[in-house]
């Protein structure tokens, strides 16, 4: 239960502008991998830069292993950062890139050699030590960036959308690689991403961020099963979100559907994944605007009195062509119940 990182009512802003992050508090335990998940502009990268020391908070404190580091310069914090762009040193070889932090710490030549060899091997680049970093592929550069950041054994490693410049196949491969490295070295990580699949796959806990605040913090399972706010629900794939308004369901654009079954007191909103929408029968009806075949499923867009409904049906079921009328149901049993009072 050692708390490695504590953010205490952190407010962050660039220059004199409006705050990008407001009153953010969070604690991260030793060995955890916590993701900051949110759309661009939600403050996740800003928070990460503040933890690294590249941005001075307007107010609030940052504690590392119990020590207040808010005023400690970035080169003295012992926090590593893997940049989205990798930020490798173009004039140096792979070996020298990985050795850079060790040289800055004035380690002995023997320590440098053995540590660099260990890290280069750990990221699967043995034999590439004497290549220039600019001669490597994107995936290889990503590995060098990881090895370089980990070589100095940082107390905390920050990763800024590290996989976003890789193609889909490499991304999944590197995701597994990252999990292995995190397990092997027991390193505490903060992972910034806008990809919920990545966050779900990697994280011990996820902090879903929106407009400079944490909307919900929890394990991937908790977030996926029970989103606390409509925003989190949308991010977790509940694409049909309705506010409960008396005995009606109100969509974001103001259009409404009658509420067939009351969800009980204290429920602010209801949300359905496309798979939870039943097609072919039910109290509602609409027109199929689009049907797209996905291999194992068919995704439908249905225009209804409650706006556009996203539904998904198994590929084996009856294909409903675009333009046809269809009745559907939003069963309460398949809905996420979003309690009142939480979040925005």
């Amino acid at each position: 239960m050692n708390e490695l990182l504590v953010l205490d009512h952190l407010t962050l802003a660039y220059g004199r502008g409006a705050p990008a992050v407001e009153g953010m508090s969070l604690s991260v335990k030793e060995g955890e991998l916590v993701s900051f998940l949110g759309p661009s502009g939600c403050g996740k990268s800003t928070t990460m830069r503040a933890i690294a020391g590249l941005l001075t908070p307007r107010s609030g404190r940052i504690l590392l292993a119990g020590e207040d580091v808010t005023a400690v310069p970035p080169n003295k914090r012992g926090v590593g950062l893997v940049f989205q762009s990798y930020a490798l040193f173009p004039h140096l070889t792979v070996f020298e890139n990985v050795a850079f932090g060790l040289r800055a710490r004035k380690e002995s030549a023997a320590v440098i050699r053995s540590r660099v060899e260990e890290m280069v091997a750990a990221v699967g680049l043995a034999g590439f030590e004497h290549r220039l970093s600019t001669d490597l592929s994107g995936g290889q550069q990503q590995r060098v960036a990881l090895a370089r950041a980990m070589a100095v054994r940082p107390r905390l490693l920050l990763l800024d959308e590290p996989l976003s410049n890789l193609d889909a196949r490499l991304r999944i491969e590197m995701r597994a690689e990252l999990m292995r490295l995190q397990r092997e070295y027991g390193i505490t990580m903060i992972y910034v991403t806008h990809d919920q699949g990545e966050a779900l796959a990697l994280s011990s806990r996820i902090a879903v961020m929106n407009r400079g605040r944490i909307e919900q913090l929890g394990t991937p399972q908790a977030l996926y099963a029970a989103p606390a706010t409509p925003f989190v629900a949308t991010f977790m794939g509940f694409e049909n979100v309705f506010t409960v308004d008396g005995n009606q369901l109100a969509a974001g654009d103001g259009s409404k559907l009658p509420l067939v079954q009351q969800p009980g007191a204290g429920v602010q909103a209801l949300a359905w994944r496309p798979q939870a929408v039943t097609l072919g029968s039910g109290p509602y009806s609409g027109t199929v605007r689009g049907a797209s075949y996905q291999g194992d499923s068919v995704e439908y867009l249905i225009d209804s009195a409650g706006g556009t409904i996203k539904a998904s049906a198994a590929a084996g079921s009856n294909f409903i062509p675009a333009g046809s009328e269809v009745s559907f149901d939003l069963p309460l049993a398949g809905a996420a119940l979003i309690p009142a009072g939480a979040g925005a």
Partner: peptide
């Protein structure tokens, strides 16, 4: 790359 160098010490 300058930020990277600073974070490396």
């Amino acid at each position: 790359i300058e930020e990277a160098a600073v974070l490396l010490g």
